[in-house]
Design a protein around this nucleic acid. Sequence first.
DNA 1: CCTACCGATCGGTAGG
DNA 2: CCTACCGATCGGTAGG
Lengths: 188, 188
Amino acid sequence: MKTVIKKEELATVAQNLFKDKGFAATSMRDLANEADIGLATIYNYVKSKEDILQGICFKVADDFLSIMEDNKKGSLQQQLDFAIKSHVAVMIDNIEASAVFMQEWKHLTEPYLSEFLAMRDTYEKYFIKIIRKGVKEGAFQKMKPKFAAITILSALNGIYDWYKPNGKMSAKEVGENLSDLLIKGLII
Amino acid sequence: MKTVIKKEELATVAQNLFKDKGFAATSMRDLANEADIGLATIYNYVKSKEDILQGICFKVADDFLSIMEDNKKGSLQQQLDFAIKSHVAVMIDNIEASAVFMQEWKHLTEPYLSEFLAMRDTYEKYFIKIIRKGVKEGAFQKMKPKFAAITILSALNGIYDWYKPNGKMSAKEVGENLSDLLIKGLII
DNA sequence: CCTACCGATCGGTAGG
DNA sequence: CCTACCGATCGGTAGG
């Protein structure tokens, strides 16, 4: 019981510190202090420092990938709209973990690094496919699909830097506005 | 002579390693090895490890800010187009330094951290102002100017992750395509 | 520009 | 779950 709670607290603390200070600049002692346990106790919950990072990165990667399986209906514009809004929803549901996912994955070592990059690549390809089809059909502007996909994902992935859970915009609003801006553009 | 060359080599090495491994995970010994000098020699060129990071971050910040002074002519759509293309040009001209600017600024300590954030804020306000005027005039979609500005900047700032100097897209093409996608949107 | 070194801190473990 | 500790590496410096 208490063990489970402490383990979850450690996970939360790790997400916050890895986001704020970065993985390399966060020591196991920092984590222990913030979670209010002894240094050696951490190793009852995790195997190593990188083990914690892996947990965060692959959890978020799984979340991203699972949403795409439900995304096969409607027009290509609707599919892209759904993909954007779902991506935003996952990020906002795990805002600290998402920040770590985006910024700290480079500290993964092999073979996890390759596995991680492969998952990210697979996810990116969902966006590329939708856009490629849309360009071919003439629904979207003539544009390199990979370029457009990466640009849209970059715009979405910036959220963790400014989104405040108790701020002026709700999670739903953020998704709607991003979809609107990226699909329809800024000019009228 | 030789000193100047080695100093420049050290700067280049620092940009590359800070980008690839991150500031905290790069040791002064890493820099010395890569620049092919002794560890202690580094301190003839810089005062400290953070001194190197400051040099990179503030150089890029200056570059970004200086382009906005020339941007007061034309319609608001033209001004935004110019701002986007100039931002992309600065990034691509300093692609490694830009990556460090975007990802590693959090390792700056006070008072440099506050100064850096203030410069970034000033720059962001240029984009916000253009968009706010455009929304008021009815040239742009009705949208929160700050939200739109941050989203556009996030999309632009993702470049360092994928842009290859010898790749398929020229710097000019990247700027034109980004301006097109973000201002006009993906759908026709 | 380098050799040799400093105190501090790191990730992790033995043993209980 | 903690005390006490390990070897390795860190940023930086003395002295030349």
